[in-house]
Design a binder for these strands. Structure first.
Lengths: 218, 218
DNA sequence: AAATATTGTTAGACTAGTCTAACTTATTAT
DNA sequence: ATAATAAGTTAGACTAGTCTAACAATATTT
């Protein structure tokens, strides 16, 4: 069985190599940065994970997950997102509070617990941030997602997810009056810089293109 | 903040010094035994916990919890019992399955999580084994508890807790047709050895005095 | 009270995970 | 194509938690 630390490395590699489109490899420094450790530390762990045949990696080369490693990583992501859903839906946690606690809960080992939790939550498809929850087989059906930046002027849409899950971004989102399932209307778009004027619950705000690109809508 | 290991030592000391009536101290070997480590290991940790002023302990002397250590221990017991209640009541875990998973969940650090979980469970007083759940202030109101062995012949009672929480005992309990809240009628008692004939859901069984002493009833 | 048994302690070693500091390889820019 | 920069690696050290083996103190038995 893996240690929590090993699990964290696999999860980080998963998000690093599968979140950004087309990317399938990561580097030592990059990995160390997201895990808040020094490159030397990450390097040691990479050797260990290679030894266990969970990643493929050669000295001075790029890192990628092997099938067994990816499977374990997906399992951890699944647990993380199910716990986030539990905290949000059953325990009244807010959007930006769930992540930190789920970081701990994702390391609880008990297949039965996750099965039962998923059932209790009635087999949710998306977590509170709108990210896909892998099913028990490790499959993630990726919905095609559109960002607010792509929506034509005049149209109304519903917020289903955010791309950036940092607490600072989430707090900004809340500040603009947005939450999951909020209705958003695009009032105007500046062709100069792509910034938008939007309307949420009758309240108008002006947001940058970058902001709009971080909001997934349907 | 304490490590999981430190938390486990405090919890073990708590159960060792407060579960048995009148006992307020423990020894190194005894502690090591319940934690499944060698006495040498426990000895190292005792020095560390003493350093942190969580226990009182002198070389070759007995061990007892100091106020700060006891408070932390109670907090862990509280978390353990709330999680057991959650697993049993919400996730359909059985009586004998909850403990193992709760051993992991009790180490999640988040005051808000425990507050909300307690509220979600509607402030339960007893866990699935009938043990008292300490409240947020760390108070445990100990109910006076009667065992089945003390019940007069002819009386009917309800099972609220068991003294021995070992999986083997719990499985035996289930075998006799008993569960939490089961109604039990004492049909006969042998004055020779204190053994009882009991009736549960119309089904009669004969049980030893020792068995009956491990069942708390109201 | 001496012998024996139990209980507790110490010293030294090991693993996992981390660090710093020095070094090597690869990439980029002039 | 060489110098500068970035990325990656190694060696050695540290902490936490564990072990074994040897030793010391305390308790028990005869």
């Amino acid at each position: 069985m893996l240690t929590q630390t090993e699990e964290n490395y696999l999860k980080a590699l998963f998000t690093l190599t599968e979140t950004e489109e087309g990317k399938t490899e990561a580097g030592t420094n990059e990995l160390a940065a997201v895990l808040n450790v020094k490159p030397a530390t990450a390097n040691d762990m990479l050797k260990k994970l290679k030894e266990k045949k969970l990643i493929s990696y050669e000295k001075y080369g790029k890192i990628s997950l092997m099938a067994a490693g990816r499977k374990l990583a997906v399992e951890i992501v699944r647990k993380h997102r199910l716990w986030e859903t539990f905290l949000y839906e059953k325990l009244e946690f807010t959007w930006d509070e769930v992540h930190e606690v789920a970081e701990q809960l994702e390391h609880i080992h008990s297949p039965k617990l996750i099965e039962k939790l998923e059932k209790f939550l009635d087999y949710p498809q998306l977590d509170p941030h709108g990210d896909v929850i892998p099913n028990a087989k490790g499959e993630m059906k990726m919905p095609v997602r559109k960002t607010l930046a792509q929506l034509p002027v005049g149209k109304t849409c519903k917020l289903v997810a955010v791309k950036d899950n940092s607490a600072s971004f989430l707090q900004y989102v809340v500040q603009v009056g947005l939450g999951l399932s909020s209705k958003i209307k695009v009032v105007t778009r500046q062709s100069f810089d792509g910034s938008l004027e939007i309307e949420v619950n009758g309240r108008r705000s002006s947001v940058s293109q970058k902001f709009a690109e971080n909001l997934y809508v349907v």
